[in-house]
């Protein structure tokens, strides 16, 4: 469909597209309405993953997938308002690829994969390779985002966002954490603090080292507070924030270190409590 009309503008929930059109920043000659494409609204299991259609809204992620994807559901709850969550989709968030998009950090932290479809077939790209620049993604003009693949949680997940007020805010910075207790891995995702959403690889490796050396996964042992501080610092170091109207670069780094420390402490507490239950 897209191949036949490479210049047509895809529209899903319209919560980004319509703002552009209403303000005359874009005047499309033709649009492709994805909201009426039923295949994009489906989700289901596939080889241990969940394959979720690009058109599934935030409201549905929360109500239908909240137990299996707690991190993405937490992020979805912070998006806009009920009206926006009822309409806005993860596919649209990926299409816009704004560094502030709230779906990106949990997708990165859980090593999600984006599925692109065209008449030439499908290709699957890890989320971390999908964001290629500010509001730029790896999708070709003849492609559409069909779905994303993400593993159901194997351990605690967290998402935390700093905004200027409580509701309806674009993130000043945000952080997502996935603990994979099956593989004993730590996953991270940072939003709004670099030209694209990014992961904090060094912070992940450092924390995996701490947990492995101490045998903490098996013991469900306590984490040294200094390790948490170091983790926070490494997350902050992975960001390349800028000064803008929502906050200075220095503030963003500081806030990220705090978010990372805090979310890790929450997630690890949850993991330790599970041993008692």
């Amino acid at each position: 469909m897209k191949a036949a009309h490479p210049d047509a503008l895809p529209i899903a929930g319209g919560t980004d597209v319509m703002v552009e059109i209403n303000f005359d920043r874009s005047r499309p000659d033709s649009v492709i309405d994805l909201a009426s494409v039923a295949e994009l609204d489906d989700w289901g299991p596939e080889d241990g993953y969940l394959r979720i259609g690009a058109g599934v809204t935030y409201t549905r992620i929360i109500s239908e997938l909240g137990d299996r994807l707690p991190g993405l559901a937490m992020a979805s709850r912070t998006v806009g308002s009920p009206q926006i969550r009822n309409r806005g989709t993860v596919g649209g968030n990926l299409g816009s690829a704004s560094p502030a998009g709230d779906a990106h950090p949990p997708l990165l932290a859980s090593k999600a994969v984006v599925e692109l479809a065209s008449s030439a077939g499908i290709r699957r790209i890890p989320a971390r390779d999908f964001y290629v620049g500010p509001k730029k993604n790896a999708m070709r003009k003849d492609e559409l985002i069909a779905a994303f693949l993400i593993e159901p949680s194997n351990g605690p997940q967290q998402f935390s966002k700093v905004g200027t007020r409580n509701a309806m805010v674009i993130a000043v910075c945000s952080f997502a954490l996935t603990l994979d207790a099956k593989r004993k891995r730590v996953g991270t995702g940072i939003g709004s603090a670099a030209p694209t959403p990014v992961t904090a690889g060094e912070a992940e490796a450092f924390m995996q080292g701490v947990l492995d050396e101490g045998g903490l996964w098996e013991k469900r042992g306590e984490i040294d507070p200094s390790a948490l501080v170091r983790f926070g610092d490494l997350v902050a170091a992975a960001a390349r924030p800028i000064d803008d109207v929502r906050g200075t670069a220095a503030y963003r780094r500081h806030a990220l270190a705090v978010l990372a420390r805090r979310t890790f402490a929450w997630a690890w507490d949850e993991y330790r409590r599970k041993s008692v239950a």
Binding site: I11, G13, G14, T15, V17, M18, V19, I21, N22, V31, D33, A35, S36, P82, Q83, I84, N86, R87
Partner: peptide, 15 residues
């Protein structure tokens, strides 16, 4: 039956 902002729904999407 879903609550939305009418300003963000494209006319054609109401078909």
């Amino acid at each position: 039956g879903t609550l939305v902002c009418a300003c963000l729904v494209l006319g054609g999407q109401a078909q």
